[in-house]
Design a protein around this nucleic acid. Structure first.
Lengths: 358, 358
DNA sequence: ATCCCCGCATAAACCGCTTTAGTAAAACGG
DNA sequence: CCGTTTTACTAAAGCGGTTTATGCGGGGAT
C-alpha cells in the first residue's frame, strides 16, 4: 500500500485546502469580523448570531490558521527551547527530559506549546530567526554568547538556564559551587585524597567552559584546598555514558591513581561505574564515585549512585514561569540559585588501606 | 535586579519592534520584492543590487518574520510531535527521548524544527488546530482516534508511531508480537510456568488498549499457550518506575505467585526490580523479570535487565523520513515492522525448586 | 417628535512576507 | 536601425486572520 499526503484534492493541487474565515463568514451570511468575534470576543455578538456562526464553523470544520493568527496578533503561543547542539545529541541527556517536564508543566498551564530549537546548519542565530516563538529558554549559553545577544537585539524575551545572571537577562541557576563543594567534602571526609574530576566540555565551540562548570570546579577546589588534599586530576568528559567510560580509561589507575572521582554529570558517572566494573575495579570498595544532577536512573544503578541532587523539574518550572512573566511584560526578580542536596547512596565509601587492591 | 522583556522601546510601547522587509527596502532604495528575492531567489537580482540589499539587511539586523513567511509560503518548517498526554507525563518516559533523537536526526538534516504538541485543555484536537506545523508524527494513537481523523480531514500529512497501519495512514511499528513472544519463550524455556504480565494502560481515555499492546499481549499468549503453561495473571502498569512498583505489590507473591514477570515497558520492569528488592525478593533467583524497549538505563540496573530491544532511534528516524517524504508529496511505502531482539542480561534465570523461598 | 445612546454588525486597514504579472531598459540578431 | 529577447526590477494582489472606526435601526429620555 502506498500513501501520499492529504486528501484527494491535495494530491492534485499540491496544497492543503483549508476552510478559511471567509468561507465560514459567507456560509453563515455574516462578515469575517463577526466570525472572528465569535471566537475571540463573543460578547460583541448577539446571542443568535453567535450560535449560528459557531455552528457553521463547527460544521465546516473551520480552524483559524495559526500562522495568520500569529501574524496578526504578534503572538504564536509557543515558547522555544534553545539548545546548543543537535537534538540527537541533546536528548541523549536525561537531564533535558527532566527539564522539559518542568517547562511542560507550565506550558500546559498556560496553553503554550514547546518548540525545540537546535542550531540550523550549525548556526543557532539562524535557528532563532526562523523560529516563530514568543520567548526563548536557552540552555547552557553564557550571557555573552552571540546567540543570546541576538535575542536581546531582536527583543525576544528570554531566560537563561545554567548560565550566569547579568544585567540584561534573568537566569535560573542552581548553587553549583555549594553542590560541588558538598560532593568533594563527602569524598574527603571518607578519607579520599587522590581525586579525579570529570569536567564537562564547553558547549558551542567556545573555548571557555560554561559558567556552571566554572562554578562547580571552584566548589570542588574549595573543599579540596580546605582539606589540604593534593591537586586533583581533571579529565573532560561529555554528558554520556560512553564519555564517562572513556574518561575512566584515561585515568591512570595504578597504585597512585585516584581513589575517588567527582563527575559533573550522572551520565558520565554511570559510565565510570560500567568501565570500572569491566576493568575489575569494585565500586565503592576500590573506587568511590559521585555524580551530579540526580537523574532518575542514578537510583537504579549498580551500585546506586551517590550524587548531588539538583531540582531539575523545579528548575524548568521556574524558568518557564519567569519567561511567561517577561512575555507578559511583567517585571521579574532574578531568582536565587536553587539549592542542591547531596544524596548519599552506595557508590562511595571510605578508602581502604593506602589505595585499592590490584 | 529586576528585568523586563526586550529593549527600552518595548518597555514603553509594549511591543517588540521588528525590522521589516519594508524598512530594508527603503533603506536600500529598492522594492520589497527585491529584498525578498535577495534572500529567496538571488538569481533574479543584479550582482550589485544583491550585495547592497544583503548588506543593508545585515546592518539593520533584518530577520524575516517567521509567521508572515509561513502564511505566505504555506510552510512553517516545523513538524509536530503529537503526544497523547501532558508533557510532564510523557517525558517521564525515556522512550520518548530516544525517539526524539531519531526524529531530531532527520530534522537536523532537513532544517526542520520539532514542536511538541500535547493536548490543549485536555483536547488533542484543539492542540492540533493551534499548531503551526507542516506535518505530524503521532505517538500511540490508533488510526480511528478522533485526533487522527481530524488530521486526515484537515489534510495534514502525518505518520503514526506505535499504532496500526490503515488504508489512510502509513504507520511505523515494531514487530510487537514477535518481540513479546520471544520474551515469553525465554521465560518458559527457563522453566517458568506461573507468569505475570504487566500491561500498558490505554491512552487518551480510550477503553480499548492501544494496538501495540494488543499485539504484545497476543505474542505473550501465543508462547504461553504453545508451552501449555497456565493462564498468566495480568496487571496494568503505566510506564513509570512507580507504577511498576505498585504492580509488583499488587501481585500475590505467595507460594503460588508468579515466578516470572513480563513487563511491557522497561520503566515498569525497573520498578519491579526495586520493589522486589525492598520486599526481600532476589532477582533473578526468586523472580525473573523481563522488560520491553531496552532503554539505555536497562543496561545499568541492578541486576541488568533482560529485555526486548526495539530500535527506538531508528524508529524515530524512519517515521520522520516518511513524514518528510509525504510532506513533499512523494508516495511512500508503509514500512515493514521493525525487528526486535531479545537482550538477555541478568534479571532472568531458571526457576529454582517449586517456586521461591519465602 | 427629536435627540441620543446603545447594541449589533460590518468595511476596511493592517500584520509582514511571497509571488505573479508586468514594465523599462539593455542586449541581441539580422 | 528596428523588432525581439533577455535582464533587472517593481506594483500589487494575495495569504488568513485581527482590530479600529464606523453604520444603522430602535428604544428611552426629554
Amino acid at each position: 500500500m502506498r500513501f501520499r499526503g492529504g486528501s484527494p484534492e491535495c494530491l492534485e493541487h499540491g496544497w492543503v485546502s483549508r476552510v478559511t474565515i471567509a468561507d465560514v463568514a459567507s456560509a453563515a451570511g455574516v462578515s469575517k469580523t463577526a466570525v472572528s468575534f465569535a471566537f475571540n470576543n463573543p460578547d460583541r455578538l448577539g446571542q443568535a448570531t453567535l450560535e449560528r456562526v459557531l455552528g457553521v464553523a463547527q460544521d465546516l470544520g473551520y480552524t483559524p490558521h495559526p500562522a495568520a493568527r500569529a501574524l496578526s496578533t504578534k503572538r504564536s503561543g509557543t515558547i522555544g527551547l534553545l539548545v546548543p547542539q543537535r537534538l540527537a545529541t541533546v536528548f541523549g541527556n536525561p537531564f533535558v527530559s527532566e527539564l522539559i517536564q518542568g517547562l511542560g508543566a507550565q506550558c500546559d498551564e498556560h496553553d503554550l506549546t514547546l518548540l525545540l530549537v537546535p542550531p540550523l546548519d550549525g548556526s543557532l542565530e539562524q535557528a532563532i530567526r526562523m523560529a516563530s516563538v514568543d520567548g526563548f529558554i536557552s540552555l547552557g549559553l553564557s550571557p555573552d554568547d552571540s546567540a543570546v545577544r541576538l535575542l536581546e537585539r531582536i527583543g525576544i524575551p528570554n531566560v537563561l538556564v545554567d548560565s550566569e545572571g547579568s544585567a540584561d537577562h534573568p537566569a535560573v541557576n542552581i548553587d553549583d559551587e555549594a553542590g560541588a563543594e558538598s560532593a568533594a567534602m563527602h569524598l574527603l571526609q571518607l578519607g579520599h585524597r587522590r581525586i579525579a574530576i570529570l569536567v564537562l566540555p564547553p558547549v558551542r565551540a567556545q573555548k571557555d567552559p560554561s559558567p556552571s562548570v566554572t562554578r562547580r570546579l571552584s566548589g570542588y577546589r574549595k573543599a579540596i584546598d580546605a582539606a589540604g588534599a593534593p591537586e586533583p586530576t581533571t579529565v573532560v568528559a561529555g554528558i554520556s555514558v560512553a564519555a564517562g567510560g572513556r574518561a575512566f580509561e584515561s585515568l591512570s589507575m595504578g597504585r597512585r591513581g585516584p581513589t575517588g572521582v567527582l563527575a559533573m554529570s550522572d551520565m558520565a558517572a554511570i559510565g565510570v561505574l560500567g568501565a570500572a566494573e569491566s576493568a575489575g575495579r569494585r565500586v565503592p570498595e576500590d573506587l568511590s564515585v559521585v555524580g551530579f544532577d540526580d537523574i532518575p536512573a542514578a537510583a537504579w544503578t549498580s551500585p546506586p549512585l551517590t550524587t548531588v541532587r539538583q531540582p531539575i523539574v523545579e528548575k524548568g518550572k521556574l524558568a518557564a514561569r519567569i519567561l511567561i512573566q517577561r512575555m507578559n511584560g511583567e517585571s521579574v526578580d532574578s531568582p536565587q540559585p536553587l539549592k542542591t542536596t547531596l544524596v548519599v547512596r552506595k557508590s562511595t565509601s571510605s578508602v581502604h588501606g593506602a589505595g585499592f587492591a590490584d
